[in-house]
Design a protein around this nucleic acid. Structure first.
Lengths: 92, 92
DNA sequence: TTATCATTTAGATATTTTTCTAAATATCTT
DNA sequence: AAGATATTTAGAAAAATATCTAAATGATAA
């Protein structure tokens, strides 16, 4: 909740790659772990950072937890960047 | 030079505020320091982080150093975010 | 050329972050 | 119920970050 969290979340390469993976559709935590050379605990931490920033959401389905992109927070960041560049935004 | 540096640079509120200030035009280091309740040394550090990320440039003029926005790196970040949201970008 | 002003660099400390291993929780299967 | 699977939580260590004070650099002014 806030730009600091969002930008911090995006500043880690593992987390950016996770978002890229989720671009194609939801994945379980385990499927995400499989894409990295890192323990599940570490990926779990990254997922919680992303979730805390609002960049992803999750949904439990039985034994699995599915993660998926939530682009609304990314929209906010996008608008902030746009407004820095000239004010093509809300401008309220 | 890279998304990590850029996002890290943007993750600090002081640095985001500096960028906002520079949106209206160049300022000297001292003028920037005046806007914050923080030592010149600390602001100098933030300026160097921003510069290292490519978000600002500087130009020495006599006793002063002027800082100004460089939005080209911000464009890169912007495009990365856009591509995450659907691929309205270069997509190369 | 000495003093002053603008800014950065150096060094220190406290906090945050990343990653690991080990343990805990929750769910499914037998 | 016991065992196996999926994922998170706890706790620790190493590295990075933000901030401060004090000192260094560079440029103007007296």
């Amino acid at each position: 909740m806030g730009f600091a969290e969002t930008f911090k979340a995006l500043s880690d390469p593992t987390r950016r790659e996770i978002l890229n993976l989720l671009k194609s559709g939801p994945l379980t935590a385990g499927e995400i772990v499989d894409q990295f050379d890192m323990t599940g605990a570490s990926i779990s931490h990254h997922l919680s950072v992303l979730k805390n920033a609002g960049a992803i959401d999750d949904e439990k389905k039985g034994k699995f937890i599915y993660y998926y992109l939530n682009s609304s927070v990314l929209d906010d960041v996008l608008n902030w960047l746009l407004s820095l560049k000239g004010g093509t935004t809300d401008e309220k």
